[in-house]
Simulated scan of single mutants.
Amino acid sequence: MQLLGKGGFGEVYLAQHNQTKNFVALKVMLPAVAANDWAIQMFLRETENTKALRHPHVVKLLDYGYSESIFFFTMEYCEGGTVEDLMRRQGGRLLVDIAIPIIFQVLNGLEYAHNAEIPNVKLGNGGFGKGRGLVHRDLKPSNIFL
């Protein structure tokens, strides 16, 4: 497996699905994070909610689980890389003609996610139920996939 990236909660690897042979992005929770019960519950709730999103401009979460003390999820692999990768190849900036179509697609995906029906949100009364909308919370060029 090839390491694609690392963040505060986990590492992302390029992996190949055993049955379909398709490439996927496999994100595994860091062991230090997995030791925290609150982080595990947040991870499980967010993956379940993200799995409900189906839109051409939102990376599809395929599956998630727990195996050998490791929490993980798989997402569709975007072989075009990230906007950060593209910016690096273009000398640090994008031409307006390149940036605007990307921005419109990002906004389209965000609008969908902000208004989508979500199956498992924490309600004001402390319980859980259906809700509407997810917020990305970490939108940056390295998290926008082409």
Rank of each mutant, 00 (worst) to 15 (best):
A35Q: 13
F9W: 04
R89G: 03
K140E: 06
D138Y: 11
E11A: 11
N120M: 09
H57C: 05
T82D: 03
G65Q: 01
H136M: 02
E11T: 04
M42F: 11
S67R: 12
F72I: 07
T47M: 14
L3T: 13
N108L: 11
R132I: 13
G10N: 03
N22D: 14
V121C: 10
M1L: 08
I100S: 07
G65M: 02
N120D: 11
N120H: 15
T82E: 03
K60F: 07
P56G: 07
P56K: 09
F104L: 13
H57M: 01
K122D: 07
N49S: 08
H114M: 04
L26S: 03
K140V: 05
F43T: 07
G124D: 15
M1Y: 07
F23E: 15
I40R: 15
N115Y: 08
A34G: 12
M42V: 13
P119A: 05
I98L: 11
L94F: 01
A116F: 12
D37Q: 13
N125E: 06
L26A: 03
M1H: 10
G81C: 06
L61W: 06
G5H: 00
G92L: 03
L95N: 10
Q90F: 08
N143S: 09
I100T: 10
D85H: 13
F9C: 04
Y66M: 09
A32E: 15
G7Y: 00
I102Q: 04
A35F: 01
S69R: 15
E68P: 03
T82Y: 00
C78S: 15
L26P: 01
R54G: 09
K6T: 11
M29P: 11
S142Y: 00
A32Q: 14
A113G: 10
I144P: 01
S67E: 14
F72E: 07
R45E: 09
S69D: 15
